[in-house]
Design a protein around this nucleic acid. Structure first.
Lengths: 270, 270
DNA sequence: CGTAATCGGGTACGGTGTACCCAGTTCGAT
DNA sequence: ATCGAACTGGGTACACCGTACCCGATTACG
């Protein structure tokens, strides 16, 4: 309210996608808000919801870069500036897109809970990965100022519910979630980046590496990289499932801690 | 050579920061290149090296968003278009910035090797984290088409050297590196995003969460999130070191696999 | 010395987010 | 019934961005 214009202008100068740059109170209202119309004035022909839906559709289909105010306005058949009647700015639009899409994986399966915490982690990781594959643009949004909407809270609640059985302290449970999600996001980002690179350059991965081959071979023969030069042919093959490998390692690592804690409870003060 | 303009134009339409979008052969030449001057024409007043140095300086100080061709040209005291005499386009500039900065952590310590693979992973993780903190903009560059320059190869060689002692198969060693790096990048990204959000909005984290508090409290009291509502006060405190926690879990997870493999070698065909 | 090759860089184009402003619409108060 | 406040729609304009295109100045080879 007190702050129009200046800050938003500064925010827009910054990097690619940021969240929560604008009026947070406004974002919160939009997320939890009642949607009550003011009594006076003509009926609005648009709604934040419709704009967010259109934005997510464009982002899914063509990437976050295709989501521009002009593009959305033509998509919705309105003037560009009309969008600003419903959304304070692009930053808030990203906020809303985030919350919309984060709810999806949990809306799908309200069914049976995971058997134990191992299954919960497995499900959490796969769900997160699926969602990131469906909406790769999620990886480009600054989530630091994510406004915690209903969807985000529900996701966190479900995750914590599945992990309670580990018998760890509360901050450690958060640590487990962070560690797993970081790992998943890293892999998802690698894949998304690769796909984007192919789309942008029109050059396949194979062709790209073929271009580098002569330089790499020269480097390997130079003797400066003895370990790499001696590695197996299939080392960088895509046959190896990095997701499964990493996830199993993570679960094993948590298991060790869970075991320690259980032992301590059994025989305290050793 | 055969491909001027059109592809580069298409590439520039895409998202934020991408790498290897341009002429790969040119990028490779710049990375490994001899730097031989052509014989005719006036002496160049600039060099790719100077441009990259300026670009890294600006990115470190003000973020990747501040790195624009116009900005670099004023920084270097030349005309904007002069930069294109030395670098095919912005995509290639990002390539070069990447390789420049990836070499740093290994240039610093050519000294004693780590005691064992555990120490190697620890060192790798901390080195990576330090580097990402020094150059947060690294997290915004699409690395899928990273041109493997000398620095990148040297880093990979050192990492593999430290991990050889684990006794795992070669693709698994890569898996270890990927898993650790994904985790580290996830944490670094969280921190970088937070810092960026503060810089953009001028709003501290505390103030931000304070804004959300009423909505969160209402949600907690609603009974829809019983597990979260019952968590300890310090659950989301920043006192808890997420980096240490996650890293120890990862090492424990790898340890389990290393133990299995050692046992198999001891008593094969059980 | 001519000329081919290279360097420096100005201008222009199509893209972005959005500030600012005005015209048209609708409803509450009088 | 009428007036005006509150609201919606949206056109125009500005400051950025990357870079295609082109021209004049400079240099060294034939």
């Amino acid at each position: 309210m007190t702050n129009d214009g200046t800050t938003a202008g500064a925010a827009s100068k910054a990097d690619g996608a940021a969240t929560g740059s604008g009026d947070i109170a406004r974002s919160l209202e939009l997320l939890w808000g009642t949607g009550e119309r003011p009594s006076r004035g003509p009926k609005p022909g648009l709604s934040p919801d419709r704009i967010v839906t259109a934005a997510v559709a464009v982002a899914d289909a063509e990437g976050l870069a295709a989501v521009s105010m002009r593009r959305l306005s033509t998509e919705l058949g309105t003037g560009t500036m009309s969008l600003y009647r419903y959304i304070p700015g692009k930053a808030e639009l990203l906020d809303l897109m985030l919350d919309r899409v984060q709810g999806e994986p949990f809306a799908v399966r309200p069914d049976e809970p995971p058997a134990d915490w191992r299954a919960a982690i497995d499900r959490m990781a796969r769900g997160h990965l699926d969602n990131l594959r469906r909406h790769p643009w999620l990886l480009k949004i600054n989530q630091a100022r994510t406004v915690l909407g209903p969807s985000a809270l529900r996701g966190l609640e479900l995750a914590l519910t599945g992990l309670r059985g580990m018998g760890l302290r509360d901050p450690e449970l958060i640590g487990v979630i962070i560690t797993v999600n970081s790992f998943v996001e890293g892999l998802a980002r690698t894949q998304a980046d690769a796909a984007e690179a192919v789309a942008q350059t029109g050059l396949s991965d194979e062709a790209f590496w073929e271009n580098q081959r002569p330089y790499l071979e020269r480097a390997m023969l130079s003797g400066a990289y003895p370990v790499m030069a001696g590695m197996a042919e299939d080392t960088f093959s895509s046959d190896f499932d990095q997701f499964e490998f990493g996830l199993q390692r993570l679960i094993a690592g948590f298991d060790a801690l869970v075991g320690e804690r259980a032992a301590e409870r059994e025989a305290p003060r050793t």
